[in-house]
Design a protein around this nucleic acid. Structure first.
Lengths: 234, 234
DNA sequence: ATCTTAATTTGTTCACTGCCGAAGCGTTCG
DNA sequence: CGAACGCTTCGGCAGTGAACAAATTAAGAT
């Protein structure tokens, strides 16, 4: 009389190559239109529309109407985290378009709408070490240096609703450690992209760190090039 | 020229109700025969055989021949963790057999071959606090009290290969915190079951804590009934 | 040696679903 | 207002795969 999870429902949503391509395309956290995704998956708009309908019904994506365009994105950070996990588990296709989980994405990449990879994990560690964030019982709250940090980096203050934690832990499947997600993490990535401290590598979730970005990471986070390049043997 | 994860391959393996049932059945970490799983999924042995072949090819399960029986189990702790995550994401079927992820499994349940749920997380915390395990850089190694603990609880020493960590972190999707997996975690659960400190609830991954088990948890881990019953508001 | 039981292989049936062409609806732009 | 564009719905075709029956292989049990 109790409950059994229906893995097959999620499974069915994932079970098609075109939908897999679409999800990978969305995994960098940006929203795309039906047509763009149809193109990415190499199918007609009608077909893509059907796929997106199915993904949405399965709760994997969400859509937003804007004029005659409909933008689709990953439903939430939870879904993004699971998909990252599945991507680690699944075989990879060497013949297809430029890469999602390649060697180049291990250093820094976007996960949904925040920074993941080695850089994401390191930044998270430093934010805690620098008292910007505090951890108690695995929930994250603002630390004494929280507002000072936002000022210095140039993010205006009220993030998320009052009383709610500004960030949550999100498991990083390549680093096998936590990075942060949530409003603060989103704001940080947005700021880094706007200020050109980070740049998206085209057609990929990989992020390039610019020279200015390296300065900021050193001054604000105490992270050097060496820290970031270091790849730990697995 | 780089790589894109093929979510559809794993998805296809999950995409069938019978296979979903089979995986849920296996999720308690025990191994079952083809016939048992066929029965659990309400299909003929031929059909189950085909399903298990498919699951194995997708890397989700592994099989072991023993006489004329073939035992199937979840391939590894990684797969188990991902499946737990997916189960959290997927809708649940109220009409089917007794429960996998019900309210009763939040307190204590088996995950693959170690203890998960609130109890798993608490035990992990205590093992670290009591210097049985030490954490450095998110890898776990034996602490000063490691061998003393094994002695006291009655587990003979050499766990896993020398130099390898005796345990790894495994994300707990209901508690949203880590519990341990790996040789130590497996040995602990086995000991708890053999000594009847924990008992499997029939047809479920839920674990019952016995009176003797409560004693052990209090003496060895410093955990009381109150700690374990406490359910944190989400 | 013979019977029983477990697992698999093969063949067939049947339902489902991905795909696109054609058509319909709604928004935007000239 | 009409043309262009984006998205969706509908219909038909083709490919896939889940189901079981029957037959095969293999390992105990008597």
């Amino acid at each position: 009389m109790t409950i059994e999870p229906r893995l097959d429902i999620i499974g069915a949503a994932l079970a098609d190559p075109s939908r897999s391509r679409i999800l990978c395309e969305l995994m960098d956290g940006r929203a795309f239109t039906n047509k763009e995704l149809a193109c990415a998956a190499n199918v007609s708009p009608q077909t893509a529309s059907a796929h997106l309908k199915q993904l949405e019904q399965a709760g994997l994506t969400a859509s937003l109407r804007n004029g005659r365009h409909v933008y689709h994105r990953i439903a939430n950070a939870e879904v993004a985290a699971i998909l990252e996990g599945l991507a680690q588990l699944s075989p990879t296709d060497h013949l297809s378009r430029p890469g999602q989980i390649g060697t180049d994405t291990r250093q820094a990449r976007s996960c949904y709408n925040h920074i993941a990879g080695r850089l994401g994990v390191l930044m998270t560690d430093r934010l805690i070490a620098l008292n910007v964030l505090m951890v108690r019982d695995d929930t994250i709250c603002a630390g004494p240096r929280y507002h000072a940090f936002l000022d210095e980096i140039g993010i205006e203050a009220p993030l998320g609703s009052l009383g709610k934690p500004p960030a949550k832990f999100c498991l990083d499947w390549t680093e096998r450690r936590h990075h942060i997600s949530g409003p603060l993490a989103t704001a940080i990535m947005q700021k880094f992209l706007e200020a050109h401290w980070l740049e998206r590598r085209t057609g990929s979730r990989a992020l390039n760190i610019t020279a200015e970005g390296l300065d900021v990471l050193e001054c604000q986070f105490g992270l050097t090039q060496v820290d970031i390049d270091l790849v730990d043997p697995v």
